[in-house]
Design a protein around this nucleic acid. Structure first.
Lengths: 195, 195
DNA sequence: AATACAAAATGACCGCGGTCAATTTATATT
DNA sequence: AATATAAATTGACCGCGGTCATTTTGTATT
């Protein structure tokens, strides 16, 4: 028999999320400890794992939510009509993704879900992001010889690549946004090349 | 005063690596346990961490060594003179990198070292790979309007992107090599585009 | 109101990576 | 050969994520 969800379930879950967000607010994502969350929330450890598959699932929720907010803002922006504008539109996302190495690791690990039924918040934001960028490149003065969707996928690949290089000692000559601009100039430019 | 390295240091390290490799051989990278390595090697746990900063450092060594072998083989290949050949040359690397999700995670985490003095085996293989691919694209019938080095960097970005998608339920329509070919066709083709 | 049962919560316990003060072993000095 | 000292090794211990048999709590049925 199926019983309806109890009120306390929602209350407990909300309490866990609220406490987790507060702990992240002062200390960052990397310093978050499950033990501390349950202590502050006043529940047992097992309860946490009844609400979240594992710690990563909580992180996926928190970080995914944050990315969603940033994409909301990007959606409001007018569509960029050159590479510079495009990079500007993506900057808030880049800033957040580079805020902590741990955050970037979580994002990488959750950017693609291994099973259809476990596609989480971050994976969904990646899909949103590609859709948005696909609209952008379709409307702007960019190359049209390949599908906008492929261009958008490529932008995402370059974005992740540049963020990764940001954490790399060997590549810290140029700032991240400038490096991204180089890639996007070469990737999106409609100017004819010499054969 | 600086004393020369003792023989037993090398012996212990060799034993640890040999045991680790044997354990990986049957069980894979993801199932490797430090406890098991030290037990089989007949040393204390602390000894392990006197030889490797952490478990990841051992993984970096093992996986980096494997990638080096694959790049050695790729170097012997004649340089590819079209995108299809290029993808073929990269296939062994892709196969290894997708052999275990854990392996890919380690590679991502070590592809760029956070500090110059801790650039590890995997980070070095990435540099090798870019150099090799840079030579390839410089010699082949590919676009020449951007530096070969940038093209090579881009190929690596697409490579990682496609491997990541491989572990993603939402994108398992097309096989990995075919998806990579789409990206590289659009990235490397010298054919003039309509403005 | 008493009973039955599923959902939720509990906390002792485990696995495993990593630490460090103490101990042993090798090498240089007298 | 005896002594001093640096290098190498040891293993008990810790932090922290995650598990699961047991208990508690809410809800539907009689």
């Amino acid at each position: 028999m199926v019983r309806k969800m109890q009120t306390r379930t929602l209350v407990t879950r909300a309490k866990l999320l609220q406490v987790a967000q507060a702990l992240v607010a002062d200390g960052g994502y990397g310093a978050l400890r499950v033990d501390e969350v349950v202590k502050e929330a006043g529940v047992a450890k097992g309860t946490f794992f009844a609400h979240f598959r594992d710690k990563d699932a909580l992180m996926d929720h928190l970080i995914g939510g944050q990315i969603d907010l940033l994409i909301d803002q990007a959606t409001v922006h007018p569509a960029p009509n050159n590479v510079d504008d495009l990079v500007t539109c993506l900057t808030p996302l880049m800033v957040f993704m580079t805020s902590e190495r741990y955050v970037f690791d979580i994002i990488l690990r959750h950017s693609g879900a291994a099973a259809k039924d476990e596609i989480g918040a971050i994976a969904q934001t990646f899909a949103r992001q590609v859709n948005l960028m696909s609209d952008w490149v379709a409307g702007g003065p960019f190359r049209t010889d390949v599908p906008a969707r492929l261009l958008a996928d490529g932008i995402q690949a370059f974005l992740i690549h540049c963020i990764g290089l940001q954490f790399c000692a060997a590549h810290q000559g140029a700032p991240m946004d400038q490096r991204l601009r180089h890639f996007l100039d070469a990737w999106l430019s409609p100017i004819a090349r010499s054969p």
